[in-house]
Amino acid sequence: MVIDLKTTKLNHADIGQIDMYVRMFDTLKRGEGDNPTIGIILCAEKDETIVKYSVLQENKQLFASKYKTLLPTEEELAEMIATRNRKLLDK
């Protein structure tokens, strides 16, 4: 698994970069019998539109996740669950 740290908002260049890293790693370093390499961009912020219309949408090995340096409060957690449920209902 390759992790790329971005302390800024996710952009297209980051996605292109991790895509390349993962491909290189897969070809150059991955051993036989290993699972396919996974790439995660840990970013401070991300725009769902960028995610939706990028290779992240299709690719099963690439992910962009936000990181947080503070524990969520109970309200934030409740909000997170509510958003998730709304998303599930929309689909």
Partner: peptide, 18 residues
């Protein structure tokens, strides 16, 4: 894989730009 990841154990400020 999760989103978001939470790393409160780092004791870092929220904004780490750059």
């Amino acid at each position: 894989i999760k989103d978001p990841y939470i790393a409160e154990f780092l004791n870092l400020p929220e904004d780490l730009t750059g």
